[in-house]
Design a protein around this nucleic acid. Structure first.
Length: 274
DNA sequence: CTCCTGTCCTGCCGGC
DNA sequence: TGCCGGCAGGACAGGA
């Protein structure tokens, strides 16, 4: 579920809550998520301070002053919960990873479907991790533009919607924001990806930047200090134009349709997207 | 290379 | 009320 905006909010929330704070203890409540949890990590991180949080695509990178750290992916259903110092932490179902901070606060990774994972890494090597090999341009960086998008789409014969979900094309876009950006740009999800060039590519790049930026903004502003009352980070109220709105009317007359592409739902408004 | 399918796992919702 | 099928925001492997 978490796409780039939600992951960005998680990263900012962690910065706000525990940057510079010392970890007292890290514990795992099961041996494996999507990948085995790194058994060496609790010993590496005990007593260390968080000194860096970063995001690349849908990944959060967390590093400590001792040089060790981890790369986190929230999968489909993962959330980070922050329980501030002074509040009691009561373990909940699917709390798989628990950081107990020196000040008494807790950071918890909860993931019912267990598609998420956590990998050990270091300050010096995290950027070399396989997770980032071949990953596409960061859409909110200065490196992203219409011409750049046009270049990575060139020659692709599959539909544009499916291409946008490929993390090698653009980093961090998932099913929701692929649908929303295509709607905003007026481009049909069924259009051949390679035909999104020139003006269309510029419009789509602009729409991607806008829709991701707005989502981060609304997440940041609608969350008190970036976390919910229950402490969970990573979800916030969105208002989507087409996603999950099959049958809704655009301009009171054009219905939103749902189709399947690459085994996943696509929502779009045929009358408004070509 | 690109594309297509299946798979991992739990929870929730709608229909009967 | 309960049971069952379908579907869910992701990513990767394997085969064509």
């Amino acid at each position: 579920m978490p796409e780039l905006p939600e992951v960005e909010i998680v990263k900012r929330g962690l910065e706000k809550a525990v940057l510079g704070q010392r970890i007292k203890r890290l514990s795992f409540n099961r041996p494996t998520l999507r990948l085995p949890l790194p058994v060496e990590l609790p010993a590496q991180l005990a007593g260390q301070r968080f000194d860096t949080f970063a995001r690349r695509g849908k990944y959060v990178i967390a590093l400590c002053d001792g040089g060790y750290g981890f790369i986190l992916h929230l999968g489909m259903s993962g959330v980070i919960k922050i329980i501030p110092a002074g509040e009691a932490y009561s373990p909940a179902k699917h709390d798989h990873v628990v950081f107990e901070m020196e000040d008494g606060g807790h950071i918890v990774f909860n993931d019912p479907r267990r598609f998420g994972f956590l990998k050990a890494t270091t300050h010096d090597t995290w950027h070399l991790d396989n997770a980032f090999a071949g990953m596409g341009v960061e859409p909110l960086s200065n490196d992203f533009s219409g011409p750049v998008l046009a270049r990575v789409l060139k020659g692709r014969s599959g539909p544009i919607k499916t291409a946008l979900l490929d993390q090698k094309v653009v980093a961090g876009i998932g099913n929701i924001y692929a649908c929303e950006a295509l709607y905003m740009a007026g481009i049909s999800p069924k259009r051949v990806a390679g035909s999104v060039q020139g003006k269309r590519a510029a419009a789509l790049a602009g729409a991607i930047v806008e829709v991701l930026g707005l989502a981060i903004e609304s997440g940041g502003s609608s969350l008190k200090d970036y976390y919910h009352a229950d402490g969970s980070l990573g979800y916030f109220q969105h208002s989507f134009k087409v996603y999950d709105r099959e049958g809704a009317m655009i301009d009171d007359q054009y219905p939103v349709k749902r189709i399947i592409q690459g085994g996943r739902s696509t929502f779009y408004c045929p009358a408004k997207q070509r």
